[in-house]
Design a protein around this nucleic acid. Structure first.
Lengths: 230, 230
DNA sequence: TATAAATGACTGACCAGTCAGTCAGTCAGT
DNA sequence: ACTGACTGACTGACTGGTCAGTCATTTATA
């Protein structure tokens, strides 16, 4: 043992250098008050978590990687989220909850279904399929089974409300004879191609690209084409 | 070194007792020749793997648990499968490959689509939805993204062939005016509710049960109902 | 200066994959 | 028919590596 310069040098290989660290932190680290910076950190962590979770799945994601991507030390994650699962749940909650309002609002304007269907397809493609929300839904589908709490939350706060909104619209339309009763019983049939699009996009896009807009259009044409029998 | 009874007794706290082990091994362990027993073991491991993988997902599954469930030591798994991933791929391959033939055979009998649709719904419910194959498809959906090899295999050997078979059927039906052209372009639209059924079954069944047969029936009624415009 | 925020080395648990050792079954030689 | 050497299927303790979560220490802010 050589005492050398430092008296008790048992574990001091710390601190790279203040300068190096200061220049590394991402946006939100510099901003105004504590509040603002804190919120920025939280966002950065969520964004990084989205990348990592959707690339690797829940189990295979390392919080070290999330931290690195967020420009933050691992410990910092634990200042904002209780644990890994909590971070995961919060991510899904934050991404999907806003959808509900948008869709419920759609039912308010009492349009003919054809026009409504148009809008819904557009909404789906622009706000879900072409955004990170598609990844989050893929995560929900992939991991939901092992997080019953999360599945329940998602069913209660998102799915059931979307289904209820769709039923309300469809019931009115059915009363006008615009759609068959079957759709009121199974609104899932309307959304089904959306699910196909999301799953296909994740798995087979590279082998056989799918023109989602065209498929959705074909689907609503099929459903709402005028029929001979009532 | 003492020759003694055992030559090298460096670490020998092994072997519970021959009797204990003999009475533990499951079916297939006793049977006829080496071949038969070997095949039995393989089956037992695959069955156990199905249980564990579909309950926990790929990453979270421990091979110790698979071994225990199969009534086998962990090392034995490595006599039959190269590694964990290999076991996983083999499981999916073994469960889904047989489907192709069945579905391709369906196209052979040149029935009217309505009758065919009937049969296909029945096939789906009985041979997929109500069996372990549904779990395997859920696994494929959940994990496929992180196993591109597996996704490609599945696309090439299963999906693309099923789609091709469906297209052949639909093209004939479209020529007879039984279905709209759109379905030939997007056979996915026919299968979409099947995907919904599988995903729903895994995530939300307990919160809102879904009558799959009824939904599928409603779906084919919608698609094949007689239309005013050609 | 006092307080809060952030850091990252460290710990304990966990687990895929390995391999030295064991044993049931086989069969050539008697 | 019996024996004992041989084979290879099977076992499970062990290793090496990984990673979630902690906390003593350092840095930034009020």
């Amino acid at each position: 043992m050589k005492p050398d310069k430092t008296p008790a040098a048992k574990k001091q290989p710390r601190r790279k250098s203040a300068a190096a660290r200061a220049s590394r932190a991402g946006p939100g680290a510099r901003g105004g008050g504590r509040k603002a910076r804190s919120a920025g950190r939280r966002e950065a962590i969520l964004a990084a978590a989205l990348e990592e979770f959707s690339a690797r799945g829940f189990e295979a994601t390392r919080l070290d990687d999330v931290a690195k991507r967020a420009g933050v030390a691992k410990g910092t994650i634990y200042l904002y989220f209780r644990d890994k699962e909590s971070l995961f749940q919060e991510l899904i909650r934050a991404m999907l909850t806003p959808l509900v309002g948008t869709i419920e609002a759609m039912g308010a304007a009492d349009l003919p279904v054809a026009a409504l269907a148009e809008r819904i397809v557009d909404l789906f493609v622009r706000e879900i399929f072409e955004t990170r929300r598609a990844d989050v839904i893929r995560l929900m589908i992939s991991e939901g089974r092992r997080f019953p709490k999360l599945a329940e939350f998602y069913y209660r706060e998102v799915l059931s409300r979307i289904i209820a909104a769709m039923r309300a619209i469809l019931r009115r339309a059915a009363a006008r004879g615009e759609v068959p009763q079957a759709l009121v019983d199974f609104p899932q049939l309307i959304a089904a191609p959306g699910l196909v699009a999301i799953v296909w996009g994740g798995l087979f896009e590279r082998y056989e690209p799918l023109d989602v807009r065209k498929m959705m259009r074909a689907h609503i044409d099929l459903l709402f084409a005028p029929r001979r029998a009532a």
